[in-house]
Every structure is written in C-alpha cells, then in structure tokens.
C-alpha cells in the first residue's frame, strides 16, 4: 500500500549563518491510509514547524514531502492553495472559526472555496454534522457555542471536503477534559468507521493516547516511536508517560 504521507529527510532552518536554528533536522516518516498518528514533543521541539511544513503553510529547506503521491515541496503557490483545500483538512488549537459566520456557514465555507454546488454543499454539511453530532448547533454563531462544540464544528469543517489527510494541531489545547474526551472519541470513531487519516500534534499524553502510533520529537529529530498495537488506551498512556520521562531525561543532569 502506498503511504498517504511520505516525509523524506526534510530539514527546516531558521535564521542566518551566524545564528542558525535547525527547527527540523533530517526527519523522515510515513503515514498509511486510515492511520491515526500522533506527534509529541516538548515545546520548541519543532513539532509545529513540522506540521506547518506538511500542511504547506511553510516550506522546507531541503527534503521532500509527498501527500497522496504528490510532491508538495515542488508545487507553486497557487497550486498549493488548490492542493491544500482539496487534500488537507485542518483542525487548530484555537479552532480558527470565523466569528462572523454560523456553524453551518463555517463548515460550508470549506466547500464554497472549492466552488462546489450549493445543493451538494447542504448534503455534505448535514452528513458531516451528523457524524460529529453537531446538528443542533449549526445555526449558532461561534460565540454562542462551548469550546467543545466549536472544536467539533472546526473538525466538521476539516472533514467536510473529504480530504486525504486531516492535520490537527493541539486540538484539545483549549478544551476542558470532558470536551477533550468527547472530541477525541469522535476522532477515534471517524478514524475507525470512516477510515479518516489523522495526523495530530500534541504535547498532552492523554490526548496522544488516542492515536495508534506516536512519533516523539526532540530538538528537531525523531527521538522515539511508539505503536499502540493491541494495548488498551490506559496501557498505551503509561507507555507514553515512560517515553516522556525519558524525553525530559535531561532533568537528571539538573539534579
């Protein structure tokens, strides 16, 4: 099976000669269709930069990223926009819903940008709203919704155009634990029932425990990889904590 996402030896440098920051340093990995992968790492580890590169928002210094067999590092700006709206779905920590639009319109926007037909739009919005259980809030504005509802609307927006890859950047970062759980449950369901491929960046072990595979990043490099396999979530969570302890291992030097 060809991977949905193929990251080959990418580097991302910031700054100039005198003060070079290697935010991403020789990273390679693959994501298969229907996978739910988590990327973990402490702040400053380069995980957000990595996500930005994959999501075509930022460009790599060297290396290649292929999504659905298309090398996005070779695409031009306008082609990137087209690629982004057709192949990728985004979920952000701060939801990034347009506060002037209702939930329905926010979800529909992803489709109108693709110039879909209005009749088609309605059908697709309703179907994705049912999947995420947000039919009641469709006519509400973001300021009338709870954080969990907002994030589910944002997820619906990411899903509605049926992208090959869903990118989630700290999706639970702004949610309380109950909402987080509800959101992650729906991620799990989407992944299991609809074979949605999800790449999620987080620094929260609980959130990460919902993924099937986790990449740990530190100082721009892949540090470790965990595969859930047949573990229960609880067991997987414990394994994550172990790695995290290892990751923060530098603290032994402190003491």
């Amino acid at each position: 099976m060809t991977p949905i996402l193929d990251v080959v030896d990418i580097e991302k440098y910031y700054g100039n000669k005198g003060n070079l920051t290697k935010a991403v340093n020789h990273v390679s990995f693959q994501v298969e269709k229907g996978e739910f992968i988590g990327i973990m790492g402490p702040s400053g580890s380069g995980k957000t930069t990595l996500l930005n590169c994959i999501s075509t928002i930022d460009s790599v210094t060297s290396g290649h990223i292929s999504i659905n067999n298309k090398d996005i590092t070779a695409l031009r700006k306008n082609a990137l926009s087209k690629f982004r709206r057709e192949e990728l779905g985004f979920i952000f920590q701060d939801f990034n819903l347009l506060d002037t639009l209702t939930a329905y319109e926010n979800i529909a926007l992803a489709l109108t940008i693709q110039k879909r037909k209005p009749s088609e739009i309605k059908k697709q919005v309703m179907s994705v709203a049912q999947k995420l259980d947000i039919v009641d809030v469709l006519q509400k504005y973001p300021y009338q919704m709870s954080g969990g509802q907002k994030q589910r609307v944002a997820s619906a927006r990411a899903l509605v155009s049926e992208p090959s890859l869903i990118l989630a950047d700290e999706p639970t970062g702004a949610l309380d634990s109950k909402s987080s759980r509800a959101l992650l449950d729906s991620f799990e369901r989407l992944n299991a029932e609809y074979e949605a491929t999800i790449l999620m960046v987080t620094h929260d072990a609980f959130t990460a425990s919902y993924a099937k595979r986790i990449l740990f990043i530190k100082d721009g490099r892949i540090f470790n990889e965990l595969i859930r396999g047949n573990d229960s979530r609880k067991a997987f969570f414990n394994r994550i904590i172990e790695v995290e302890t290892l990751l923060g291992g530098d603290s032994s030097n402190v003491l």
Partner: peptide, 15 residues
C-alpha cells in the same frame, strides 16, 4: 486573522 484562516483553508489568492 480572518483572512489568515481563509488562507489556511486553501482559498486562492485570487479568490
């Protein structure tokens, strides 16, 4: 901020 969201959602520059 709003236009940034549009950009992230993949709206073309022309649009």
């Amino acid at each position: 901020q709003r236009y940034l969201i549009l950009n992230k959602l993949g709206a073309e520059k022309r649009m």
